[in-house]
Simulated scan of single mutants.
Amino acid sequence: MQATVYIVRCSDGSYYTGLTRQPIEARVWEHNNLPDVGSYTAKRRPVTLVFTETYDRLLDGIAREKQIKGWSRRKKEALIGLHYEDLPQLSRRGHLTSD
């Protein structure tokens, strides 16, 4: 069963990382339209999809979502920009480390 890890940029500039098994377009539509007043994205609409990764195994997707949620903003932005080579160097506080 496939699962998609995704990141949306909210109207306030923050990022939300999630996981879905439905088509990503439908999930983004839900973030922008469903009346869920208690959710993070409902207070920060509209949201824009900025990144996706699809996994064949749900457990792999769950692990990746959890990993990304623990990252700094700067590290998430490197991922969104597909700057994979920068990921190992980015610290938890979002600064490049020197070797």
Rank of each mutant, 00 (worst) to 15 (best):
Q2C: 13
T4D: 13
T4F: 11
V5S: 09
V5I: 15
Y6R: 06
Y6T: 06
V8K: 04
V8D: 06
C10I: 10
C10P: 11
S11L: 07
D12A: 05
D12V: 05
D12L: 05
D12Y: 06
G13Q: 11
G13I: 03
G13V: 03
Y15G: 02
Y15T: 09
Y16G: 00
T17Y: 03
T17R: 02
T17H: 02
G18R: 08
G18S: 13
T20Q: 04
R21L: 10
P23S: 12
I24W: 02
I24A: 02
I24M: 03
A26F: 10
R27I: 03
R27G: 03
W29V: 07
W29S: 11
W29Y: 13
E30Q: 13
H31N: 09
N32D: 11
L34C: 04
P35I: 08
P35Q: 11
D36V: 09
D36W: 06
V37F: 01
G38M: 03
S39F: 00
Y40F: 15
T41E: 02
A42S: 13
A42P: 01
K43N: 07
K43Q: 13
R44M: 01
R45P: 04
R45Q: 10
R45C: 05
P46H: 02
P46C: 06
V47S: 11
T48I: 10
T48A: 12
T48P: 00
L49G: 08
L49H: 08
L49Y: 04
F51V: 03
T52Y: 03
T52P: 05
T52A: 07
E53D: 15
E53Q: 15
E53R: 14
Y55R: 02
Y55G: 04
Y55S: 05
D56V: 01
R57W: 08
L58G: 00
L58E: 09
L58H: 09
L59W: 06
L59K: 10
L59P: 00
L59Q: 12
D60M: 07
G61N: 08
R64S: 02
E65F: 09
K66S: 15
K66G: 12
Q67F: 14
Q67S: 15
I68V: 15
I68T: 09
K69M: 09
S72T: 06
R73M: 10
R73D: 13
R73Y: 14
R73C: 06
R74A: 14
K75T: 03
K76D: 07
E77A: 01
E77M: 05
E77V: 01
A78C: 10
L79G: 01
L79P: 00
I80H: 04
I80W: 03
L82K: 14
H83A: 12
D86F: 00
L87H: 04
P88Y: 01
P88M: 02
Q89E: 14
Q89A: 14
Q89D: 15
L90N: 00
S91L: 04
S91A: 05
R92H: 11
R92D: 12
R93H: 13
H95W: 11
H95M: 06
H95N: 09
H95T: 10
T97A: 09
T97C: 08
S98E: 11
S98A: 11
D99Q: 05
